[in-house]
Design a protein around this nucleic acid. Structure first.
Lengths: 266, 266
DNA sequence: TTGCTCCTCACGTCACGTGAGGTGGC
DNA sequence: TTGCTCCTCACGTCACGTGAGGTGGC
């Protein structure tokens, strides 16, 4: 039997870490001295600790270890979990590279930003009822693109306008926003998560944004300033219509994107 | 002036985030209503918030923002900080890929593990005094390799043995361990952080480990078991001698590495 | 007895999110 | 007045590290 200090040295896990793993029941000592509460570890603790140390070195989270460790009986089990982490790491690589690419794009647009007009055309329109096929989800604003393909597939040749999205939240949310991606259709479409309904016509404020999506907030600000100046009050859900946007395969030039924002007025 | 809810919408920062940024003085509102303590933001808050939102999207930490935001006056300033993050992301990519490679190596050795003997030769030796050139650092055990080149350069042709390391901590530490990388020398070397001293001879336990470094803990366990069985007590600093290890350019086959662990006895 | 090794709290970290409970102005 | 928008605590998160204060056995 090893006391915690000895066990720490042979497993390369700190004493604090071992006590923590005891707490969360990831690695219990084989016994606890009744006199002085010393933790006592044995050979089987050692085998388990080596596995845990390996997983920890490869940045498994505690939750992942709690889930995987009990199922690891031999080297092939361990290897299987390691290969899963290997795949996760591929995602990590991809997302870091994606951020790098976005930075490059942003840096390019920063160079051109002097030529960018933040001059918006704002109109008040009475919109008619329109029939739309829509797909609801909860998530991030930027995820709209992920649902577009699904929606297109469901409506087939029935589309009569461009893709848009409805935003239902009173306030801005990082995540978990309630969103419906939609497209106007000439007849009812019901397929999987895609349903059809009528968007009621209403008096609305409309503003046209030309340029990349990360500058959309400028348009929202212009709309809000306009409403304050003209004593108007907006409500939800507001719409975005993607008049010109990225294609299915290629992104094109974000500087040429056109987006119409429509805010219903009370 | 915008109230926090409006400002949240036009900046795409949640209300909670804005309150937090106020707290930590990253983004103070332009004014606070004396009656009801409402935060009020203005145009200049908006400019600053857009910058902060951009940095946040690219995963700048709060500390990085606190440091960079006050210095960002125009697009070129922002672009410069973004390019710095771009480089950081390259490191992130590299470290994820490195982990992937290590996993592959580990999975390979797991396949061969059945043929691996954990049969150790243990000896008690009376070691003589030796003169060593050494380089002290505080950090991780695995960082030894980073200092080897520096040490080699300093000693030139005066080396009379293999590289080793001295470990001074009573207990295992993840980080901040006190370590000296050393090599025996025939004459005094004093160059930069490299100094010379005499390692006092002493009665020691010696154990030879053959195989990759991540299995070294097996050897430590064998040593500790042996000491327990023979009523011996080890002390610090213990030594590792890298009899056969990776080269400067290529790692070679870790299965063939040979490491001697030397633990002084009290 | 002193020193050693261990013990159990309690708090801090990072960047907010999630409530709870409450207040001013239309 | 009710509902709206805002306010300030206080707690939780992740995986431990950093003390503080204290105990049994050589």
């Amino acid at each position: 039997m090893y006391r915690i200090g000895e066990f720490s040295k042979i497993t390369s896990l700190t004493i604090k870490t071992l006590r923590y793993y005891d707490d969360i029941e990831l690695l219990k000592p084989a016994a606890v001295d009744e006199q002085n509460s010393y933790r006592l570890y044995d050979e089987s603790s050692y085998e388990k600790a080596l596995i845990i140390k390996t997983l920890k070195d490869f940045e498994f989270t505690i939750q992942e270890m709690l889930e995987s460790v009990p199922g690891i009986q031999d080297g092939t089990d361990l290897a299987a979990f390691l290969m899963e982490k290997h795949e996760q790491l591929a995602l990590r690589v991809a997302s870091a590279k994606s951020l790098q690419r976005q930075i490059q794009v942003k840096v390019e647009t920063l160079k051109e930003v002097h030529t960018m007009k933040t001059d918006y055309r704002i109109e008040i329109k009475d919109l008619p009822d329109i029939q739309i096929a829509y797909l609801a989800y909860k998530g991030k604003y930027q995820d709209v693109g992920n649902y577009v393909g699904q929606l297109f597939k469901a409506v087939g040749g029935n589309a009569t306008g461009v893709i848009g999205a409805l935003y239902f939240d009173e306030s801005y949310m990082e995540d978990g926003a309630t969103i419906e991606v939609f497209i106007p259709v000439k007849k009812v479409v019901e397929k999987g998560d895609v349903h059809t309904k009528v968007l009621k016509g209403q008096r609305c404020l409309s503003i046209l944004h030309m340029g990349p999506y990360d500058l959309l907030s400028n348009a929202y600000k212009a709309a809000m300033d306009y409403m304050t100046d003209h004593d108007l009050k907006g409500t939800i859900p507001n719409r975005e219509l993607y008049l010109k946007g990225p294609g299915m395969l290629l992104k094109g030039n974000p500087a040429k994107y056109e987006t119409e924002i429509i805010i219903p007025l009370v």
